[in-house]
Design a protein around this nucleic acid. Structure first.
Lengths: 249, 249
DNA sequence: AAGCACAAAAGGTGCGAATGTTTTAGCTCC
DNA sequence: GGAGCTAAAACATTCGCACCTTTTGTGCTT
């Protein structure tokens, strides 16, 4: 059995975080808290022992005895791992901590944990969004209902009647979000919506002074979106592709 | 000021979850725990009052007084919101809870929380992956170094020399992951890698009996990947596009 | 032997207290 | 008047305890 913690003595450790770094025998770079430390240790145990999904990792009492940590601390570590999709918890007499089935969503979420909040992420998000536009819009064109089309035309109307720049961008956002809601691909939809809303900041200050240029830009954007919505309404995949190309210019 | 909880009486509520649903005056559908309830209420307060990033939402003591909840409970709610990227917490005398700057990664992570582990997610993930292939490979073609190309050719060699189906898929996976590592778009890379590894399960049982068909399939896949890697090596964007199209057939 | 009721075991939530860390306002001392 | 120190206010973590829900094994009853 892997030794999880250096706490040979049953954790007469003082509260607070000062004592953590001094705890001996840490293999990984020291996480900040005992709970994170324990979570990392459990994750490594699962990896190194190659436990299959569904295998029993332990129970709260067993981990509590093994580490000497308080119940709340162990529980916190387990909560972290459950949130990350690593563990599956079952209550009841035969319950305990089990290795979870990894779904693509969970994998994606976990991968995103490794992507820090780098500044380039905004630009990258916009590029990603533009690239997903086709997948989303084609999916929408395939699955749209008459009700969907009516609502899309309404939202295009909002786009046309919006007064200021902010209102225009909000209407634009609402339209694209509504289109995405039609697309049946939940993964693509989640990524797309998640990266929406960051296109507004990119072009907001380009037309600070030039009213005429701003109006021309808006007219053009409106035309592009009308074309896009009508292409989706028609269900013509080729037309959608063309409209997306025009949209992303 | 928005009333956050129905706890007019200072929470002489019993522990456990039974009493929660009975608490009066909930606007939203009842979240499971007090902490989640409070988190939802705070999120709604931020939305409805249109608080700007950087605005002060409150402090732990102020929320504690407002809700009557114990310190640990309020702290748990704040922890949830911080994890979701909604709040930014600053310690110190002038500290407190502030509305956070929302980065695209954080938004995406939060959006994915709403995507349950639906079975269709696997198929959706594969479709999403295929669609991202072009973005990833074009990015790789733009940024590749000579070292990258050498390693890619090595990995193609592994693909060729792999013996069984499992080994072939693993080599395939390693190759695509290495290509993705070249692409400079961190967001696209995270999504792509996160959805990788779920293509193997789709076609594994198609050639259970027919050895010749399996061999033909592998020869074809190998040819496609050689074409892809050479297109990336050449830096010819058009050739990459063609190779991706062939790859996704 | 079948069915049912109860108890045991496991996880979940909440509370209060204690202690540690971070940050800064405000005061003191040159 | 400026530099440095101090105390206060805020968040962070941990602990021990109490009570609750869920699940299931077990034994009793019929």
């Amino acid at each position: 059995m892997t030794q999880i913690s250096g706490a040979v003595q049953p954790a007469v450790q003082h509260p607070g975080t000062a004592g953590i770094a001094a705890t001996a025998g840490l293999k990984l770079a020291a996480p900040r808290s005992r709970a994170e430390h324990l979570a990392a240790a459990l994750e490594e145990r699962i990896r190194t022992q190659g436990l299959e999904p569904g295998a029993l990792v332990g129970t709260l009492p067993s981990l509590r005895e093994e580490t000497g940590y308080a119940r709340a601390t162990v529980s916190e570590a387990v909560r972290l791992l459950r949130e990350r999709g690593v563990l599956e918890i079952r209550p009841g007499r035969t319950g305990g901590l089990f290795v979870a089935e990894t779904s693509p969503v969970v994998r994606l979420r976990h991968t995103l944990l490794t992507v820090g909040d780098q500044p380039s992420a905004v630009i990258d998000a916009i590029e990603l969004r533009d690239h997903l536009e086709e997948l989303i819009d084609v999916g929408a064109a395939r699955c749209r209902t008459d009700d969907d089309v009516s609502e899309l035309r309404l939202l295009v109307g909002n786009l046309e009647s919006s007064r200021d720049w902010d209102g225009f961008m909000r209407a634009n956002w609402a339209l694209h979000e509504r289109i995405a809601a039609i697309c049946p691909n939940v993964m693509a939809r989640a990524v797309y919506v998640g990266t929406l809303g960051h296109l507004s900041s990119s072009a907001s200050s380009r037309f600070d002074e030039d009213e005429a240029a701003a109006a021309a830009y808006r007219t053009d954007r409106l035309r592009v979106h009308v074309e896009l919505v009508e292409a989706i309404a028609s269900g013509d995949i080729t037309a959608v592709g063309q409209a997306v190309t025009n949209h992303n210019l």
